[in-house]
Design a protein around this nucleic acid. Sequence first.
DNA 1: CAATGAAATATTGGATACGATCGTACAAGT
DNA 2: ACTTGTACGATCGTATCCAATATTTCATTG
Lengths: 226, 226
Amino acid sequence: MPPPAKPLLQRQTVTAMVAEYIAAKIIGGDYPGGHQIRQEAIAAELGVSRIPVREALLQLEAEGLVVIRTHRGAVVSDLSADDAIDLFDARLLLEPFLVKKAIARMSNQDIANAERALQDYEAAISRGDPKELSRLNWAFHTALLEPSMRPRSMAVLQTLYSSADRYLRLQIEPLKAQTKALQEHRDIFAAYRLRDAVETSRLLKKHVADAAEEIVSQLKRGEAAV
Amino acid sequence: MPPPAKPLLQRQTVTAMVAEYIAAKIIGGDYPGGHQIRQEAIAAELGVSRIPVREALLQLEAEGLVVIRTHRGAVVSDLSADDAIDLFDARLLLEPFLVKKAIARMSNQDIANAERALQDYEAAISRGDPKELSRLNWAFHTALLEPSMRPRSMAVLQTLYSSADRYLRLQIEPLKAQTKALQEHRDIFAAYRLRDAVETSRLLKKHVADAAEEIVSQLKRGEAAV
DNA sequence: CAATGAAATATTGGATACGATCGTACAAGT
DNA sequence: ACTTGTACGATCGTATCCAATATTTCATTG
């Protein structure tokens, strides 16, 4: 019999835990853009060695959350307005395309999953926790696209999203924007449920474009302010 | 002062070297899909420790060349026909879009760079080294898109390409396909030089779509053969 | 003889220790 | 005072060693 202190069903590697930890800090805004991440500090903080920290940082670099320069450590990657345009333009191409593919293949179960994600998002608005809201927002998008059965494109989208995610929180925060996003989600889902690929795609595209415009203008104000 | 294009004298880290080494083996076909990569074997082969090998594998996983499963090691990722469709569909969205952006911003120097890349590709055909040809093929595509100033999208494209690259070698090898690709490259460049964004985009899209169709049908034959 | 289960082995994951590199402070020279 | 060279400290990169886990082998049993 093994001595399972806790790994009953969940067998997680330390590297993965550290990666989640750091990613949460970045996305949550605790580590702002440009912040230098010291391996030893993280290692001491979590009571682990530097090796898993290094490997976690490598993964995060692949996701675009940090930038590693040789012998100079990892820095939380900052987003310029140009970067945001870059990222969102790619999303604007991929998401409408994928949602069409998804509608062509989806089952009733998939529709139910998307509805559930929509309801979760809706329920979270009243609580108003930005991190949770951001997570559920993306969960809804993911639920819409999942039936497309395009794991590679989904992986790409994941990195595109997480690279801009923490800046989106600013946009999501105002209550007006939240309710606007919720209404858009509802409209998208309504068309989705009816398997209206063209309309769903159009609405989704507009939804993403609106978010893009909002975040870009915010970033530009921020850059001008500096 | 303009950005220093490239540090000509770059200190290479062992991890990066190992990553290049393994990537070359995979792309070159020495490690076929499904092949298990043993860290210690690589380490002994190169006379280094296992640490840089592990970190190199992490990077390669981010590029989609290998898949790592906990405590089970890394295996060279294999490509199904569905995967290929997935990857190429994403490329089909991004490349035509980016080339339009590129044409809108490009300088005469950028055109010269693309022409140079085209000539290099042309010159390599007579030598017929598949690896080199594949590299130069992608270099041409990259040269076309570089002026778009979209580093994030370019990074995405890089991973999309490298994931399918080694299978493209099969398609590129036959002489007829090579000359066909060359002619298409010439046509694309001709429109590019004239700053005809619509036509360039159209030709590029067709060029990628042809390659996609070729590789997908090959993969399907391969799967059927098994 | 097939199925099951437990040791043995192979391989990866992680910790500690050491060496290399970069940034900076400070001293010396012009 | 400004520049240049150098020593020091902080931090990262890598090697070596140990622990945890998956796979294989082989004995046992029905």
